[in-house]
Design a protein around this nucleic acid. Structure first.
Lengths: 202, 202
DNA sequence: CATCTAAACGGACCATGGTCCGGTTTCATT
DNA sequence: AATGAAACCGGACCATGGTCCGTTTAGATG
């Protein structure tokens, strides 16, 4: 399971020196261990460096920033979910009619975002390009579904309109401050989806 | 054994000591000056403290965190906008039919969020309760409009669905990464609003 | 194998957000 | 005015993210 970003990133690449590759793997493993063990927020870069038996500078060379490192972990975390969207069982995976896939997508994405909330938050500060990759997959899939459904209008924007209420910031506000429960939010999303897909191309 | 008048619990903190009030004002002014002059991101807490002629500890005592201070500035920034929603000229202010007010709300909120983007971002890290206030006003007003329009469904959720795509994070992604222009986003929002308000209570 | 270069390494160093605590100030009460 | 206590103040101090640069190493070339 290579951890190269799924989407082709323009240019660069070239090939990583063997020591660099070894260190990157060690760092990711160490970071994952620390996250599992202490929780995302209490994982410091120094700790990761030490746990990987590597200098601090190396961590920053590999991942640029703390959120960059977290984004790398997030990529791994998302891999399973992406796989089940691409090739898993219906209705999330292929095989079900688009409308059912859409509804399954919403619920599943909602849960996935909540599961990865801490990681997502830690990965989101700055570095807009990096965690765009993970967002991008979901957005692309969603656009595909809307297109399949012959939805009329600006599909890129409508897709954003469906993704936005599933963002962690929004979800946590609803759950923690307004005291909504997940079921209500999921049902509300489905209603939203219905309203959006109600207008079709003639 | 003095009895402080028991004000409504929500407000708490009945009265501020005069020196504290003076310092808070000085800090807010200094911070605003620095923000105007150097931009939000390059304003450090030490700088604010010094510019206000006050110890660093005082800044943190008053505003708790950096984002707390930014949230305070944001409150001031939002005051004008809130006033024009409550009592400004139509269609944003009262007097226009709800549907027109709704559409004006979207566009106006979109622009307002973009104008305050840097401040909003700086205020948003952690401290969920603080910047909830500014969010809350817009959300409440939106719910009111949806209610006026006899929109069917879970109005709190639908209101969130309309607010979420206007969040700074989302907007900047669309503008900077996907290269959309503001006009397109605004038009898309209006379309979204139309779809949402299309279903009314019988 | 000797050599050379670009890349990687490490850890000292810096900047900044946030905490702590001894001393000071406000202000209600007497 | 004197008093007492709660609130406030300041700046030294700590933790952590991020930078810098002299040194080491992979691996290509002859």
């Amino acid at each position: 399971m290579s951890e190269r970003p799924l989407l082709p990133i323009l240019g660069q690449d070239v090939r990583e020196r063997s020591d660099a590759a070894r260190n990157r793997k060690a760092l990711l493993e160490a970071a994952q261990r620390l996250v599992d063990h202490c929780g995302v927020e209490s994982v410091t870069m120094d700790a990761v460096a030490e746990a990987a038996g590597v200098g601090k500078g190396t961590v920053f060379r590999r991942f640029r920033t703390r959120s960059g490192l977290m984004a790398a972990l997030l990529d791994q975390f998302e891999a399973d979910w992406q796989a089940s969207v691409i090739g898993g069982p219906p209705p999330l995976g292929p095989g079900a009619p688009p409308r059912e896939r859409l509804l399954a997508f919403g619920r599943s994405r909602l849960e996935q975002n909540l599961r990865g909330a801490a990681l997502i938050r830690a990965a989101s500060t700055a570095a807009p390009a990096r965690n765009y990759a993970v967002y991008s997959f979901a957005a692309t899939h969603l656009r595909y579904l809307l297109d399949q459904l012959d939805v009329a209008g600006d599909i890129a924007l409508l897709s954003t309109a469906l993704m936005a209420p599933l963002e962690v910031v929004i979800l946590e506000q609803q759950i923690e401050i307004e005291g909504m429960d997940v079921e209500r939010i999921a049902a509300g999303w489905e209603d939203l989806a219905e309203r959006i897909i109600a207008r079709r191309r003639s």
